[in-house]
Design a protein around this nucleic acid. Structure first.
Length: 807
RNA sequence: GCCCAGGUGGUGGAAUUGGUAUACACGCCAGUCUUAGGAACUGGUAGAGCAAUCUGUGGAGGUUCGAGUCCUCUCCUGGGCACCA
């Protein structure tokens, strides 16, 4: 028999699949039940495919191939998240246009992906930088704009000085730019936003971003992270009247029960009340100095100095606590955030750590109103029973919160209020390589949407890439200077482009109808294929892509374009594959494993199967070059089993039959529950058993080949062909487990005495408790522990275990 | 500080409702064969002990005939959020 030569086999079959793309094509017309299995599409970087891509793409490929064999109509597409900064930065350095770089990278990615035998439906390939695609990104922008979900406003925004563009909140990690790690600063700029906060709670028929999490099958950690990011907080908002004035300062609190302990009020440096009260503030010079200092701090500086609180009293201004009628001093301090709640807080040093630290530093009164702590040492922040709180004394915190909020409402000075941490999504970018925002500014008409007939607004090529802080599109006269679509006068185009996350927020709709020139996708096709049945990708997109995509789905559902309001019914993340040394793979450490090298050495089937065998998909796990040998040996063993295929009739071998059917069941269950590592191990057990046989029935070997085909499609096709099949193993039926045939003639029964294993006996699987007891008590080993003792109890698990309880 | 997910041999990891702890694989040890190779095959491999046996799933308690699995407390690791009032 010839040797197992993965390279030859893999080339042969990849060529065949390429020549017959229909075998993996999704069928728009089929009435079979559909499965939409989706990978997070890659950014085609110059570095090529990463070993982590291989992990998640193999996982989805296995389940896609499995579902096809089960008779489902499977949609398993792939495409390119092709806009983005790396190509643009490369252009700045070298002058090579990003479209060139991207085109090259895509060609390389495609080659690499095909060398791994993934069963994508390439007829549905998409590319976000293709005008045929971003026309619809722009179209969706216009729908959002026309319905009030996209708007432009001046605001304090995150600015990355190195990337020279604004960033969304989600793209700032620990005060640093998600992409380049530079410290982010705050700037007042006029920018485009999407009203994502409108969809936090249910909106009409559309289930909200919070409630929607309850109906999807996503990892708990991901749901928790999204809830965390949205940051819902239920509290009370009420006003402090400024003494000798009609004006009031609104504060927000979750602890209105501590209101009798208020000893001062604090506003954020951005709070408008400061300039409004300028005439009253006797130390305004000092206050102004503080404001300037606060403004110059970066986000990082402002939060890094958490311990050391600073602030200035607004001398000459006092505010009235509505509960006590007491006048308390007013401070400005940058530990209060301008962008959250009302930008002002009531300070209760006895029951809040930050207020406590501030009060200690500036020698302010600390008044205890909830019993249970020792406020001479530290703030007591738990709930408790109220003291020193007039009529509310004696109530516990929860009850007091309710009654005090009711009182505020009755007095018309406050109400219950819900706040969220989530801000609207800032989507404009001052960069080149993205989808242009389809808006035209006219001196007379203002912001005018580009007419839908004029879409796409094509990205011009006559630009200078050097980032200046203004979009490079401003340099393109052909692009920038246009006529107003409304009045025809000279006007200017919006020069900012959209965040690449906008392009990736809807791409999974486009796969349903990728070539449609009249719609972003025909509604019958979208509603046929969507929602996505299984979505697999890295956990780093938890609050970025996954939140934005949900928002798009909800907005489009609300506008009547979709039948569903959650895009991804089931989500799983692949874990990070660490380098052999246990560190993260990185170019600078030189510990990166390149899939091309591994494929060249051991073949795609081995790489695919090894990555699935390493451990649970979602776990972080280190690469092991040594460990691959196990899979090489496994596939070689399967190859050699061909020699044992019997051409004649084999006598029924009961033991192997049971093992085959048990394996079918286990592999089937494991694939459906995404536990490929244990699926492979049970296949190994079956192969080890086959190896011990002199001959194997052809049908049994076929079942094995069918089962390995999702994991290692090339060797499976080759063996399938050698078994005499004319058609691809993809067209084969997935083997069925027969429960009758799984039954063993004899099973091992564990005999325990007082819960400890003392003996293992072979019995018929259906013996009764009495029979089992009798057999067990005859055993010498068991006797040694039961002799002369009274049997108090027998626990019997049929076919498995008997536990004899003695004194 | 808050919220998730985890801690099992030398290594990656197995273990339906609580029911044989360490499947499968790597590595290691011994052996067989050999054209000495990073091949193949056979056997062994949690720890202690000559053995019977005892001890073992981060730690301490508890529930149970029986706990890796359930409960309480605690330590550690990874991830997310964080001056959010």
């Amino acid at each position: 028999m010839e040797k197992y030569l993965p390279k030859e086999i893999e080339n042969k079959w990849q060529q065949k699949w390429k020549n017959d793309p229909s075998i993996y094509a999704a069928d728009d017309l089929s009435t079979n039940e559909k499965k939409y299995i989706l990978d997070m599409f890659p950014y085609p970087s110059g570095d090529g495919l990463h070993i982590g891509h291989v992990e998640s793409y193999t996982a989805t490929d296995i389940i896609s191939r499995y579902f096809r064999m089960k008779g489902f109509n499977v949609l398993h597409p792939q495409g390119w998240d092709a806009f983005g900064l790396p190509a643009e930065n490369f252009a700045i350095k070298t002058g090579v246009h990003p479209s060139e770089t991207t085109k090259k990278a895509i060609a390389n990615f495609t080659k690499q992906i095909n060398s791994l035998g993934f069963s994508y439906d390439w007829s549905r390939e998409i590319n976000t930088s293709d005008p045929g695609y971003y026309k619809w990104t722009q179209w969706i922008f216009l729908q959002l704009y026309k319905n009030g979900f996209a708007y432009k406003k001046k605001a304090k925004v995150n600015w990355c000085p190195s990337c020279k563009t604004v960033l969304a909140n989600e793209q700032v990690i620990d005060g640093k730019c998600e992409r380049c790690n530079s410290e982010v600063i705050q700037k007042d700029l006029e920018q485009w936003f999407f009203r994502i906060t409108d969809f936090i709670e249910n909106k009409g028929e559309t289930i909200g971003l919070l409630n929607g999490l309850e109906k999807v099958d996503w990892p708990d950690s991901t749901k928790a992270a999204q809830r965390n990011w949205i940051g819902k907080s239920e509290g009370t908002q009420f006003g402090f009247r400024i003494k000798d004035s009609e004006e009031a300062i609104e504060v927000y609190t979750t602890r209105v029960d501590t209101a009798f302990g208020i000893t001062y009020v604090v506003v954020a440096p951005e709070h408008p009340v400061i300039s409004n009260l300028k005439s009253k503030i006797s130390n305004f010079a000092e206050v102004e100095k503080y404001l300037i200092e606060a403004q110059n701090k970066t986000e990082l500086e402002r939060t890094e100095l958490q311990k050391e609180k600073t602030g200035v009293r607004l001398e000459g201004v006092e505010v009235i606590n509505p509960f006590t009628g007491e006048a308390v001093p007013l401070f400005v301090a940058d530990y209060v955030l301008g962008g959250y709640g009302t930008g002002a807080v009531m300070a209760v040093p006895a029951h809040d750590e930050r207020d406590y630290a501030f009060a200690k530093k500036y020698n302010l009164a600390i008044k205890e109103v909830v019993s249970g702590g020792d406020i001479s040492k530290q703030a007591f922040t738990d709930d408790g029973v109220l003291i020193n709180s007039s009529d509310y004394t004696g109530l516990d915190s929860a009850e007091a919160r309710q009654k005090m909020a009711d009182w505020l409402e009755k007095e018309n000075v406050g109400k219950k209020k819900v706040n969220y941490r989530l801000r609207d999504w800032l989507v404009s970018r001052q960069r080149y390589w993205g989808a242009p925002i389809p808006i035209i500014y006219c001196e007379d008409c203002g912001a005018v949407p580009v007419p839908e007939n004029d879409l796409p607004v094509v990205l011009p090529t006559d630009v200078d890439f050097k980032p200046t802080g203004e979009s490079p599109l401003v340099n393109s006269k052909t692009f920038h200077e246009v006529n107003c679509p409304s009045c025809g006068k000279k006007a200017k185009r919006e020069v900012d482009t959209m965040d690449t996350f906008v392009c990736s927020s809807w791409y999974y709709f486009r796969y349903a109808d990728p070539k449609n020139a009249d719609e972003f996708a025909a509604s019958e096709k979208i509603n046929k294929w969507l929602p996505v049945d299984l979505y697999v990708g890295g956990a780093e997109h938890t609050v970025l892509h996954l939140l934005y995509a949900r928002f798009f789905t909800k907005a489009l559902h609300h506008l009547g374009y979709l039948d569903f309001d959650e895009p991804f019914s089931k989500l799983r993340h692949q874990g990070i594959i660490l380098a052999e040394d246990g560190n993260k793979m990185s170019k600078s450490k030189g510990n990166v494993v390149n899939p091309d090298t591994v494929v060249a050495e051991v073949g795609a089937d081995v790489l695919r199967m090894y990555e699935m065998f390493m451990g649970p998909l979602e776990d972080m796990k280190p690469w092991s070059t040594q460990g691959i040998v196990g899979i090489v040996r496994f596939l070689e063993k399967i190859w050699k089993l061909q020699e044992k295929i019997s051409d004649g009739q084999l006598p029924e071998n009961g033991k192997n039959k049971a093992l085959i059917h048990k394996t079918i069941k286990k592999v089937t269950d494991n694939i459906e529950s995404f536990r490929y590592n244990t699926a492979i191990s049970s296949l190994m057990i079956l192969v080890n058993a086959f190896e011990k046989e002199k001959e194997i029935a052809a049908g049994d070997f076929e079942a094995l080949v069918a089962m390995i085909s999702p994991f290692a499609p090339h060797i499976a096709e080759e063996l399938w062909e050698k078994l005499g099949h004319q058609t691809s193993v993809t067209k084969a039926e997935w083997p069925k487990a027969d429960a009758e045939l799984m039954k063993e003639e004899e099973v091992e029964m564990v005999v325990q005495v007082n819960g400890k294993v003392r003996e293992r006996l072979m019995i018929a699987p259906d013996v009764t408790e009495d029979e089992a007891k009798e057999t067990a008590l005859e055993s010498e080993k068991v006797k040694a522990f039961t002799q002369g003792k009274e049997i108090k109890k027998i626990i019997f698990v049929p076919g498995k275990l008997i536990n004899i309880v003695v004194d």
